[in-house]
Design a binder for these strands. Structure first.
Length: 779
RNA sequence: UGCCCCGUAGCUUAACCGGCAGAGCACCUGUCUCUGGAACAGGAGGUUGGAGGUUCGAGUCCUCCCGGGGCAGCCA
């Protein structure tokens, strides 16, 4: 059996599992997802995660994904964002086909649903002002108080609501609220507002409406209208799911309930060295801290596009970061890795010197030029193509490839040292020319004419260092924006100071570079590798006369990483965490009433139930009663208690106990079957599940299905031997000390017997068989 | 402090009904190489937040504790 697929686009995650389960059990025949941006800002790489997830699931399961503008708030939304969002989604490589929708298209239908709720008595018009509504909502620890308008009749509500629509009232005079529960422990359920009056033109519906639906009302119903199957959103909407379900359960007819949309939440993307919130991004742009929404340092899709990041790299990245529910923050290193990996295979190499240092080759004839044929691709990339590079007496090399006093491990140029010029000759530094300030302004060198294209000179010289270069006479000057991390700390939001305090002052230094002439041979959108430096492409500001490049990402540089002093930030140690982790156990029995205490005494002393279990049983409603009733089926109270607490509670909640499709006595009988080894615990759980699902009687069911446990040693031995010979390698590994494999074999034996193998017997036999010598086991 | 969600290697995560804790990135070694890149080979790194319990067997089920996040907009 293949152990899980690990190709990037079939990576396993909980949403994929849910979809596959829904498809497998026929809940849905196809998958329909949606990406629902609000047109009030630009998309960033966090949105890319959602886009890739939604469109990706639709693609993987041959479903469809809608692009829906969630435009229910006319005061913040704007047409201009709509176009940019569509462009970004397309650029990322996704196609919504005919499925472009707007929540505003549904205003009429949403309104009808609102009238339906009113008619059902599930919604009412509240005429309190905003402040009163807020005050009466209560707090997380105190219940809210019902509005004085809460008990208006459906007729009155309908009249008022129609008048609201007709424009009879000013902003804020009334709202429509769901009638749920002002004392709910879930704040979202304290009569949430469904509609508000807003005398504002909408960018699409103009002045047609002066009441607008709230997100919670519009979103779930829009999903239902579009027959969305899986409504995927980020974690901050977890609490809203309760209301999502409430509305759909009341608005949709019974026959649609089974296939109605369901909401699932996943963790939004956070990344080191950047910020992802719309508000913070907006501040950077508006305060002029960056140069517009498409500044190449920004994580906006527009910024990444301008920087030169290919959409394929973003897609791969989104596949690799995973989809889960834990709040997380991914290291920038993963993004950089994926980016380099993408660029490596698509970027022809040329040479470019970013910080030029002049070199004069004193033994090369003045005024002479030669053309060197150099491949665009290294040998490990399956791609052809080459260019000619002019070589002459005067070159530029990278300033940092020369050191007056080379440190240990530095194997580039230094006084008296020899390096290889990439694609050309060996070069030795003879003299260093400095200006009045001591600054190195020129290197005077000699080359070895016999070493062209060689790794080794005839006399065996073999310089380790390789240096890129550009002929001074032919160099093409260019401005290069050295795009770097926007912030100088991994999480600029995790400090007391405003996040802008952590902007990296060197996030985009400008280099005056010299490039080899072949740079002009490529179309503007071609991404290039400047050898030994990084990946670059032409910026939108570039003209053919004045070249401007952006650095998309530098190459990995193990030398400068080594040279940098390691200053890894250290978090709290495990010891420190443990020290701050006291175990305080407050005994619930301390608050027991006299009656409860009496019961506790009876449970522990008469029934012999462990105190902790008894306390839990008594402290949770229904549990203690259930235990006493189950005793009619089986008198061993501790066994029954274990099964209630550990098994039953894993399947149902205490409040469901009175309505179970079987009696407590039947439950007791089930426990007896297990406790007396009539059936195994494993089978007991299966039987319990069947009782829960179909209300079967345990004894009848066990007899009818033949579920009694198997303790016949010969029968078990046969099964065990079969398993052992099926996995000789595992047997070997077990004998070599990997005892965890006992569980592996037990698992197989249990599965083989549908869980009916008596575990003690089976394990004893298995242990014997595994430790027996090979000749015996093989028989 | 009420309710909801989440804790698996430095980071992001996998693990079908409870059955061998497994990857990628990062890190370290080595090989190869006309990019200090790439590729390849290897290594280290885990008390699955903690403590109890159920079970032949717990990352997975039950209880409690600790830690992180979310909810009191007429935003989405």
């Amino acid at each position: 059996m293949p152990t899980g697929s690990d190709t990037p686009d079939s990576r396993s995650h909980f949403i994929r599992n849910i979809i596959e389960a829904d498809l497998a059990d026929g809940t849905h025949e196809t998958v329909v997802t949606r990406f629902p941006p609000e047109p009030n800002g630009f998309l960033h790489i966090g949105h890319a995660k959602s886009i890739c997830l939604n469109f990706g699931m639709a693609r993987d399961y041959q479903g469809r994904c809608h692009l829906r503008f969630d435009d229910t708030n006319p005061t913040t939304e704007d047409e201009r964002y709509v176009a940019s969002i569509q462009r970004d989604v397309q650029w990322l490589g996704f196609d919504w086909g005919d499925h472009l929708y707007h929540a505003s298209d549904y205003f009429e239908r949403l309104y009808a649903f609102a009238e339906q709720l009113i008619a059902q008595g599930d919604a009412y018009v509240d005429s309190q002002d905003g402040e009163a509504i807020r005050d009466n909502r209560g707090t997380v620890t105190e219940p809210g108080t019902p509005s004085p308008y809460r008990s208006r009749s459906p007729e009155e509500n309908l009249t008022l609501f129609r008048e609201m629509r007709a424009g009879a009232y000013g902003n804020g005079a009334h709202v429509l609220r769901a009638k749920i529960d002002m004392a709910s422990p879930h704040m979202i359920m304290r009569d949430p507002i469904l509609y508000r009056i807003r005398h504002t033109d909408h960018y699409r519906t103009g002045g047609a409406w002066c009441i607008y639906p709230m997100y919670d009302f519009a979103h779930c119903l829009s999903d239902a209208i579009e027959e969305i199957t899986h409504s995927l959103c980020t974690l901050e909407f977890e609490n809203n799911r309760r209301l999502y379900d409430w509305i759909l359960e009341r608005c949709l007819p019974a026959e649609q309930q089974a296939t109605r949309p369901h909401q699932y939440e996943f963790a939004r993307l956070n990344m080191d060295y950047t910020v992802m919130s719309k508000r913070k991004l907006l501040r950077l742009v508006e305060e002029g801290l960056v140069d517009g929404w498409d500044d190449p340092r920004l994580p906006t899709l527009a910024g990444l596009r301008r920087r030169g990041v290919p959409p394929s790299a973003i897609r791969t990245f989104c596949d690799r970061i995973g989809v889960a529910k834990a709040n997380s923050r991914v290291e920038i290193a993963l993004f950089e890795h994926v980016l380099r990996d993408d660029l490596n295979y698509r970027s022809p190499r040329i040479m470019g010197v970013l910080d030029p240092l002049k070199v004069t080759i004193t033994n090369y004839p003045a005024g002479e030029t030669e053309q060197i044929e150099a491949p665009h691709w290294p040998r490990d990339i399956d791609n052809d193509g080459s260019r000619t590079v002019p070589f002459g007496r005067e070159l530029y090399i990278e300033r940092e490839d020369f050191r007056m006093d080379p440190p240990d491990g530095f194997y580039r140029l230094a006084p008296g040292r020899e390096v290889r010029l990439r694609h050309a000759y060996f070069l030795r530094c003879d003299d260093v020319v400095r200006d009045g300030d001591g600054e190195v302004v020129e290197l005077r060198c000699t080359y070895d004419p016999d070493t062209k294209g060689q790794t080794k000179a005839r006399d065996g010289r073999r310089p380790k260092g390789i240096v890129h270069w550009v002929s001074a006479a032919h160099a093409v000057p260019a401005t290069v924006r050295m795009v770097d991390r926007l912030f100088s700390v991994p999480n600029p939001e995790a400090h007391e100071e405003d996040f802008t305090a952590f902007l990296n002052p060197h996030s985009m230094p400008i280099a005056k570079a010299m490039l080899e002439p072949a740079v002009r041979d490529f179309p503007a959108e071609q991404r290039l590798q400047f050898e030994r430096q990084g990946y670059f492409w032409r910026d939108a500001d570039a003209t053919d006369e004045a070249l401007v490049f952006n650095q998309i990402i530098p190459l990995r540089d193990s030398w400068s990483a080594e040279e940098e002093t390691a200053d890894a930030p250290t978090g709290p140690t495990k010891e420190e965490i443990e020290a701050a982790n006291p175990q305080i156990h407050t005994d619930p029995a301390a608050a027991f009433t006299d009656a409860q205490n009496a019961r506790l005494q009876a449970f522990t002393e008469e029934f012999g139930v462990a105190r902790d279990d008894a306390v839990q049983l008594i402290d949770t409603p229904h549990l203690a009663d259930y235990l006493e009733a189950a005793l009619d089926g089986y008198h061993e109270a501790q066994a029954v208690a274990n099964w209630i607490l550990n098994e039953l509670m894993g399947m149902v909640s205490p409040t469901e106990l009175p309505d179970l499709p079987f009696t407590p006595e039947q439950f007791g009988v089930l426990v007896r079957q297990v406790d007396t080894d009539e059936i195994t615990g494993r089978v007991g759980k299966d039987v319990l599940a069947a009782m829960l699902e179909r209300g079967v009687d345990p004894q009848d069911y066990i007899a009818a299905e033949g579920l009694h446990n198997i303790d016949d040693e010969d029968a078990l031995r046969e099964i065990i031997d079969a398993q052992l010979s099926a996995y000789p390698g595992k047997v070997e590994a077990y004998r070599n000390g990997k005892e965890g494999l006992l569980g592996f074999f037990m698992g197989h034996v249990m599965r083989e017997t549908n869980g009916q193998a008596d575990p003690q017997t089976a394990q004893a036999l298995l242990r014997n068989a595994l430790t027996a010598d090979t000749s015996t086991a093989a028989q």
